[in-house]
């Protein structure tokens, strides 16, 4: 049952990458939202609330990380379609042919 072993390996890898990106990024996004609401409680009427300037910086840093990750995701899709692979040499993304 070589197939079973290969499938378990594949599933294991997908699980870890997926947890990192699929659960980690939404968590970062949630941190950004939490930062925006700094200073108001859940029950308070927040319609007039303006985010704290420092909180804004934190929030937009969080959202920035998520946006970059989505851009990388689109990069993976495009690269895949073109028969190339997206690699990160250091942190600079590049397409290399498969």
């Amino acid at each position: 049952m070589n197939n079973l072993w290969l499938a378990l390996q594949g599933a294991w890898n997908v699980l870890w990458v997926g947890l990192l990106l699929g659960a980690g990024l939404p968590a970062i996004f949630a941190l950004g939202i939490r930062a925006l609401s700094y200073g108001v409680g859940g029950d308070a009427d927040a319609t007039l609330h303006e985010p704290h300037p420092a909180a804004k910086v934190v929030a937009f840093f969080c959202f920035g990380v998520v946006v970059l990750a989505i851009a990388a995701g689109i990069g993976v899709i495009v690269a895949h379609g073109l028969g190339a692979k997206l690699v990160f040499d250091g942190i600079v993304p590049a397409f290399v042919p498969k």
């Binding site: 599933a11 997908v14 699980l15 997926g18 947890l19 699929g22 659960a23 939404p26 968590a27 996004f29 949630a30 941190l31 950004g32 939202i33 939490r34 925006l36 609401s37 108001v40 409680g41 859940g42 308070a44 927040a46 319609t47 609330h49």
Partner: peptide
Amino acid sequence: VIAVVIAAVGTSLIFRITRGVAEKYRESGF
């Protein structure tokens, strides 16, 4: 199974992190 685990972890993280966050930010942000 993989998807269930990841989504469950993600959901639980999100709800923990945004507990007590005003609806205004929570709904529109997400």
